[in-house]
């Protein structure tokens, strides 16, 4: 097995082309190294992508841009993600409760993993786009299409993730994230993210209600039923409770860790809690 640490994107692309599906980009290496028994045999080349200048958080007119190798702790602590309309990203990063892993794990890595993780749930709630690069150029794909199944993403041979783009939400938008786990250091048993925008009259003009980490489809999913309940309504206790009850259109897995029934109950609780938080944030102009 070969190891490379390119400093230019073009060099990284050449290596990805050369090794095809035997090429493994390595960012924080927390997933790769904790699954090394399964993963090393299939790897002909590991390509360190941490020196490609993909470590940044920037705010443009069209929203927030987070480079693929930006770490969880950088997202957790950054002024652009810590407060204001993108605070759900810091909230979510902080739910990985181990400081040492937050210093290593990257946003590009966590979305590529497509398993029992938290960030993709929040990114789907934010309607984020994933910017992908290869020797053929760059393309953007919606978070809703990036995960194609459990541990399976939409990257094609020769491609890597360059950036996550979180579109600028309308004024009066708020979001919330909730995670259910057995101990503070656990992976999520299920998680929930909600994202709501209010119009001038205070009615809900946009809503995304997402559950992830343990859906039957293996990818984070939006609850069409819960969103339909919210749209056009005033987000009060009654509406929150009916939206939460409607969220059981998302089916969860039943496994040795928790039954599907309990997971679905947690989704309902998570939708209720995060909607309260999202609505409160939206009413404060999305700046809290």
């Amino acid at each position: 097995m070969e190891y490379y640490s390119p400093t230019e994107l073009d060099h990284a692309y050449t290596l990805l082309d050369k090794y095809g599906d035997g090429a493994v980009p390595i960012a924080g290496s927390t997933f790769f190294m904790s699954h090394r028994e399964e993963l090393f045999d299939a790897a002909d080349a590991v390509i360190d992508i941490k020196k490609l200048g993909l470590n940044y958080i920037r705010l443009n007119d069209d929203g927030l841009h987070i480079g693929a190798t930006t770490t969880f702790n950088e997202i957790f602590d950054h002024k652009l993600t810590r407060d204001g309309r993108y605070a759900i990203l810091s909230d979510t990063a902080g739910e990985l409760n181990t400081n040492e892993v937050r210093n290593m794990a990257t946003i590009g890595g966590v979305i590529c993993v497509a398993g029992e993780v938290d960030m993709p749930t929040s990114l789907l709630a934010c309607d984020a786009n994933i910017i992908i690069g290869s020797s053929r150029g760059t393309r953007a794909i919606s978070m809703s299409e990036f995960h194609v199944g459990y541990l399976n993403n939409a990257l094609e041979e020769g491609e890597m993730v360059l950036e996550v783009h979180v579109p600028q939400p309308p004024a009066n938008t708020g979001a919330g994230f909730a995670k259910f786990q057995r101990t503070a250091a656990d992976l999520p048993l299920v998680n929930v993210a909600t994202h709501v925008s209010l119009d001038g009259a205070g009615a809900c003009s946009e809503a995304r209600v997402v559950a992830g980490a343990a859906t039957l489809s293996g990818v984070p999913e939006r609850s069409a039923a819960a969103e339909a309940v919210l749209l056009g309504g005033i987000i009060d206790d009654a509406l929150i409770e009916s939206a939460a009850a409607a969220s059981n259109d998302i089916e969860c897995v039943n496994d040795f860790r928790v039954s599907a029934e309990v997971r679905q109950l947690w989704v309902r609780c998570g939708v209720e809690d995060t909607l309260r938080q999202a609505a409160a944030r939206a009413r404060q102009g999305g700046e809290v």
Binding site: I26, S29, T30, M33, N73, N99, V101, N103, M104
Partner: peptide, 18 residues
């Protein structure tokens, strides 16, 4: 755990070459 460039990390999850 050790400190890599001042930050604590898990050295079992880092390749030495990296």
């Amino acid at each position: 755990t050790l400190l890599l460039d001042g930050k604590p990390i898990f050295s079992c999850l880092r390749m030495a070459i990296d």
